[in-house]
């Protein structure tokens, strides 16, 4: 089901690109490596994520930015304490809404940024193992909420309409599990990605 939902949202973004009849539209697809941080003693491995953005330029240097962010299941290194061994994983999706300023040089390069709000949905999963003779276990919880994102990138125009991009992204999901737990946290996702953009 989540996959179908993602496809639906991507389709909506693409449809939006079709519907808006103007020259100042752009579709970006970025693939990136992520680093997760909860500000606590977590130990997440590097993860992967995909971001799709549709931009509508209402000025040559400024666009409205709508996007979808989908991460894979990012695993933590296994840890051991007096209770047993445990490992968590996080999977996250977000709808992004903001602005995208850019500056295009005379050469076929441009720099751009993104800044906006996100509505996220995050699933936290836990695996525990207590050793021989005690049954292992698994549990998970989901939450939704708001946060923000910002990024900075550079693009090289391969043709007048097609560009390749490099992008650094910083996303913060605020108050994850606030109201459900006494130990809520802010989830920071930093990523480095590359992708392609298409202007039409």
């Amino acid at each position: 089901m989540p996959f179908a939902r993602h496809l639906l949202i991507i389709a909506l973004v693409l449809c939006a690109a079709k519907i808006v009849e103007a020259d100042n539209k752009q579709l970006d697809v970025n693939f990136g490596w992520t680093n997760l941080d909860t500000g606590r003693n977590d130990n997440f491995k590097s993860g992967k994520a995909l971001a799709v953005h549709f931009d509508y330029f209402f000025k040559p240097w400024l666009a409205a930015d709508i996007g979808l962010y989908v991460s894979d299941k990012t695993l933590e290194e296994s840890q051991q304490d007096i209770v047993g061994a445990f490992r968590t994983s996080i999977q996250s999706q977000a709808i992004l809404l903001g602005v995208k300023p850019r500056y295009r040089f005379k050469s076929p390069y441009e720099v751009y940024g993104r800044l906006g709000l996100q509505y996220w949905r995050t699933e936290l999963e836990l695996e525990e193992d207590f050793g021989t003779g005690v049954p292992a276990g698994q549990d998970s919880a989901k939450d939704t909420g708001y946060g923000y994102y910002l990024s900075i990138g550079g693009a090289h125009y391969v043709t007048e309409n097609v560009m390749v991009q490099l992008e650094l992204r910083h996303m913060v999901q605020l108050d994850v599990f606030e109201g459900e737990s006494q130990f809520p946290f802010d989830l920071t996702i930093n990523s480095f990605g590359f992708g392609v953009g298409y202007r039409f």
Binding site: T38, A136, A141
Partner: peptide
């Protein structure tokens, strides 16, 4: 004390966890 024993973990231990019961 399944929750208190896990208090040094980073995630919300009062929300998710598995409890094998007292030994």
């Amino acid at each position: 004390e399944p929750i208190a024993a896990r208090e040094n973990r980073w995630y919300p231990v009062d929300l998710i966890g598995t409890d094998p019961g007292p030994g």
